[in-house]
Nucleic acid binder design. Structure first.
Lengths: 221, 221
DNA sequence: AAATAAATTTAGACTAACCTAAAAAAATAA
DNA sequence: TTATTTTTTTAGGTTAGTCTAAATTTATTT
């Protein structure tokens, strides 16, 4: 059984690996875990001793299969709990992360299985992120970034890259949530902003926003 | 905010206080927390520094109002989670305690409020134990012990004193659960056992068992 | 390629929560 | 009431996870 801290390190390394694919640096981990680089070096040595990661001094770390399994298991729990909080307890998508950060460390395999069943085996969490299966398989995202779409295309919002409450609250205010249909009216070259139509309403989205929204082309169009 | 360990100590002291009403000894705590007396002395000093308990060397401890609040809050969370596990996730009453031991330490007031609401504001957990209110009030048990009832009385099972899985599983096997109606057929003086009728079936209950079952007189009789 | 800057690791300390072994106090028995 | 047993506390250590400050390695400039 692994500690809260160990699970958090492994989860963080997994997420960073998804983005950078290279070896993950001590500093990158420190920034996310909100700790000091020296503490990360310490922890990373212990995780390496337990064969959960590969670590070479000054060269960064990467997950072993064993470590990846623990990371995916933790992410699975996190996302199932988020789904529970959202669909059953009516928490907003901007509120679920923080509580799930705690719940993901509860030790009980049967608990998460029952919860999964209770929720009807969801495949995505409230932010559109895929929920890893029990065996640790996770569907690759085939989503596109809204910023890359063309004028006149119609797309369906399917996820976000930025999970911060502020960003999510802003999207909620725009009535922009998972499943919302977007029509791209115009792309402004000057600042890379975008004019889109959401439920009949025309709104202006900055590049900062469109870079963090994941979409798929709308089948209906 | 208090640590898992602190909450567990306070909860334990509260429960022991309910039973003995006197000052609680180091050894009694050690036995329940599954630790050594020396460790308890350590912890008890720290809890005393934080004004959560009153502690005098060699004289045992008692909760302050502040400590009692934390204890009741933890018990509230424990019992609400147990109710959730039982009524929504279909865990047996012998299975809920262990998982709730972890869940009770999740830090979020709104989470427990939402869960409470989701469950329809239950007043008792799956073992019949009362759930403390948000303000920390808890109904006094007016239940009687089955062993003390008279021949020919009809009673309703309303709780247990022994919460061990083995005992609870035994009761389940007898189809004896919260709400079950019992008719006392005969009390055997020799070994203080009891012959009772449960749903038309006659069974023999040892003194050990009847001492751990809480009942109320059946209104229907 | 040397100098400087940035990232990483080491060394040494801290805290919470635990431990064992020995000492001290309280309770019980003779 | 003294002697013995039991309970509790103290003293000194351990581990996980953290920290700061200094040393070392790697990366970047000039």
């Amino acid at each position: 059984m692994y500690s809260f801290t160990e699970e958090n390190y492994l989860k963080t390394i997994y997420k960073l690996s998804e983005l950078h694919s290279k070896n993950i640096s001590t500093n990158a981990i420190a920034q996310i875990i909100q700790t000091k680089a020296a503490s990360v070096t310490d922890m990373v040595k212990r995780l390496s001793d337990k064969k959960l990661i590969r670590y070479e001094k000054y060269k960064g770390v990467s997950l072993t299969e064993k470590g990846k399994k623990v990371a995916l298991d933790t992410i699975r729990k996190h996302r199932i709990w988020e789904s529970f909080l959202h669909t059953k307890l009516k928490f907003g998508w901007d509120e679920v992360h923080e509580i799930a950060e705690q719940l993901e460390h509860i030790k009980s395999e049967v608990l998460i299985d029952r919860l999964d069943e209770f929720l009807g085996f969801p495949t995505r969490d409230p932010h559109g992120d895929p929920i890893p299966s029990k065996t640790g398989s996770i569907p690759k995202n085939t989503y596109k970034i809204l910023a890359d779409m063309m004028e006149d295309e119609q797309v369906v919002m399917n996820g976000v890259l930025d999970h911060s409450p502020i960003f999510l609250q802003y999207l909620s205010k725009l009535k922009l949530e998972i499943g919302t249909v977007l029509l791209i009216i115009e792309k402004i070259e000057y600042d890379n902003s975008m004019t889109v139509k959401i439920n009949g309403k025309t709104v202006q989205l900055s590049n900062n926003v469109t870079q963090n929204i994941l979409v798929i082309p709308d089948a209906r169009k």
